[in-house]
Design a protein around this nucleic acid. Sequence first.
DNA 1: CAAAATGTAACCACTATGGTGGCAGTAAGC
DNA 2: GCTTACTGCCACCATAGTGGTTACATTTTG
Lengths: 150, 150
Amino acid sequence: MSVSSRSAVAIHALTMLGRWNRSLTSAEMAESLASNPVLVRRILGSLRDAGLVSSSEGRNGGWTLARPAREITLYDAYAAVEAGPVLSRYPHPPSNGCEVGRHMQRLLDVEFREAERAMEERLGRTTIAFLVGQVLACERERDRRAPELS
Amino acid sequence: MSVSSRSAVAIHALTMLGRWNRSLTSAEMAESLASNPVLVRRILGSLRDAGLVSSSEGRNGGWTLARPAREITLYDAYAAVEAGPVLSRYPHPPSNGCEVGRHMQRLLDVEFREAERAMEERLGRTTIAFLVGQVLACERERDRRAPELS
DNA sequence: CAAAATGTAACCACTATGGTGGCAGTAAGC
DNA sequence: GCTTACTGCCACCATAGTGGTTACATTTTG
């Protein structure tokens, strides 16, 4: 199986916040995600706990970025919403009586951690600001090709 | 959630085959894994489909490496038993009516694929032969510290 | 023919996930 | 002070993937 889609939702929401640079409600983001507000709040809640966004309750409440989009990477979003390692280890410890089983757990852990680190390092290279820029560029291109749409 | 533990089981089994360099049965490997033979056969079956091991039926049957341990990487094992991307995309396509939603799916796919590629590249750097060597080294160290065990 | 293996299908329990409804709390605006 | 529009949070559901297990047909060897 794979990692949950929460990272995708989180990055989507962060990019929306970066794009419009104003407070957005969970309902607005849910509409763009074709999902529902509760799910969005659940995920944004994790982002808030990680210090990436802040929320305000009550009327005119909503969500804003807690720091500049340049300073938020995809890894930050990923780390905020995913728990535990990507590559799962053994379902239960292997036999200690086997020459291979005795050591594999530790050896595998080293290898898997390295591999996960490589993935995380790559995610850390892309910022929300970059994605916002890409979105804007795509929109400009879209306007050039079909100006009647806007 | 994370990727299944099948990769760990596959790598464990391959390392056993590389270590003893003879035919092993699913029951032998299951014992080392503290699991059961059917599960092992299921996973080894994927490895066979990927050309990493071969199996022989009937009495005195079992499993052997289909090519040298030097030429099997952790990525080979991982790719043989895991299906689909590690980082899952959206549960369903986002709204096409949103400026961000319109483009995020494609942009995210690029980023996630890069990140996955980084992880896979790292997995591809370690061979089963290396792990076998590590296991042997661990055993030698173990003997040095507590010779009475062997 | 018996024994020892693989190959597979069926099934179970458990867990994570996305999704949903309900409702209390809170802040703004009239 | 009341209404409105939000967040926050709980409980619940359906679904799917996973590891585990039993059962049994098939194949090969002795």
